[in-house]
Simulated assay, not measured.
Amino acid sequence: MSDQIEFRSHVLTKHRLALESLLFFNSCQARVASCIADAVETFGAPEIVPEGADRLRVRIDGMQEEAQALFAVEAATGRPVGVAIYTRPDLEHIAVLHLSISAEYAAGGPRSDEQLLLRLLREVRRSTRRMKGVRRLELYYARGRMPASRWRSESKELA
């Protein structure tokens, strides 16, 4: 089961519609709509941009720091089924600003047993461990309705 999903830093251009659907028209967004609205208001909206001739990446429009994206893709097709958009606001923290998981992999979906959200966050954490000085991975959506101004100093830590 787990070998059916790969984690990549890009999505091929031919999967643009699937990526747009995942990011902007995801049926699971209603579950965290207020968190999404807060994140967009605080950091900016995700934007799909071309990278080279055949790749796409996601950036946060208007954000001074460069955002990174990690995509969960189906190994057989390359179709994106999950994405985590994150940044490094300071030397010690990685902040996950946006998350999106395809409905089929989300809670209640037919493939929910693959725990894609948890695996995606673990992969972000694993990839950021190589960065010198990073001590915490913070999840913006889990900040408990804390005002954005206090979030950076009092965010929750993933174990």
Score class of each variant (00 low, 15 high):
residue 86 Y to P: 05
residue 132 K to E: 11
residue 53 A to S: 15
residue 96 V to R: 01
residue 148 A to S: 15
residue 152 R to S: 14
residue 48 I to N: 07
residue 61 D to L: 06
residue 82 G to S: 00
residue 144 G to S: 03
residue 54 D to R: 06
residue 87 T to Y: 03
residue 58 V to Q: 04
residue 55 R to W: 07
residue 62 G to C: 02
residue 113 D to V: 10
residue 131 M to K: 09
residue 65 E to W: 06
residue 73 V to G: 06
residue 40 V to T: 11
residue 66 E to R: 10
residue 149 S to E: 14
residue 143 R to W: 07
residue 141 Y to S: 11
residue 70 L to D: 01
residue 103 A to W: 04
residue 89 P to T: 06
residue 113 D to F: 10
residue 147 P to D: 14
residue 71 F to L: 02
residue 152 R to T: 07
residue 90 D to H: 12
residue 149 S to D: 10
residue 42 T to N: 09
residue 75 A to L: 01
residue 89 P to D: 10
residue 55 R to N: 05
residue 56 L to M: 08
residue 99 L to V: 09
residue 143 R to H: 12
residue 39 A to F: 03
residue 124 V to E: 03
residue 92 E to S: 13
residue 138 E to T: 09
residue 43 F to C: 08
residue 73 V to F: 01
residue 115 Q to D: 10
residue 151 W to G: 01
residue 141 Y to Q: 07
residue 116 L to C: 06
residue 94 I to Y: 05
residue 71 F to I: 08
residue 50 P to V: 01
residue 87 T to M: 13
residue 119 R to I: 00
residue 152 R to E: 12
residue 131 M to Y: 11
residue 147 P to G: 02
residue 150 R to C: 10
residue 63 M to W: 14
residue 146 M to L: 15
residue 39 A to Q: 02
residue 73 V to L: 04
residue 88 R to A: 12
residue 151 W to L: 08
residue 103 A to Q: 12
residue 110 P to L: 04
residue 86 Y to S: 02
residue 108 G to R: 05
residue 114 E to M: 13
residue 93 H to Y: 04
residue 124 V to G: 07
residue 134 V to C: 06
residue 60 I to C: 03
residue 94 I to W: 10
residue 68 Q to P: 01
residue 108 G to N: 13
residue 80 P to Y: 01
residue 48 I to H: 08
residue 109 G to K: 03
residue 38 D to T: 09
residue 79 R to W: 06
residue 100 S to A: 14
residue 62 G to I: 09
residue 108 G to L: 02
residue 131 M to T: 15
residue 54 D to N: 07
residue 126 R to K: 15
residue 96 V to A: 03
residue 91 L to Y: 05
residue 63 M to K: 11
residue 90 D to M: 00
residue 142 A to Q: 11
residue 127 S to Q: 14
residue 100 S to M: 06
residue 38 D to R: 06
residue 75 A to N: 05
residue 120 L to A: 03
residue 141 Y to V: 04
residue 118 L to S: 15
residue 96 V to T: 02
residue 47 E to D: 09
residue 80 P to W: 04
residue 113 D to T: 14
residue 91 L to V: 13
residue 106 A to S: 14
residue 84 A to S: 11
residue 140 Y to I: 10
residue 71 F to M: 10
residue 93 H to V: 11
residue 39 A to W: 04
residue 82 G to P: 03
residue 128 T to Q: 06
residue 115 Q to A: 12
residue 53 A to F: 08
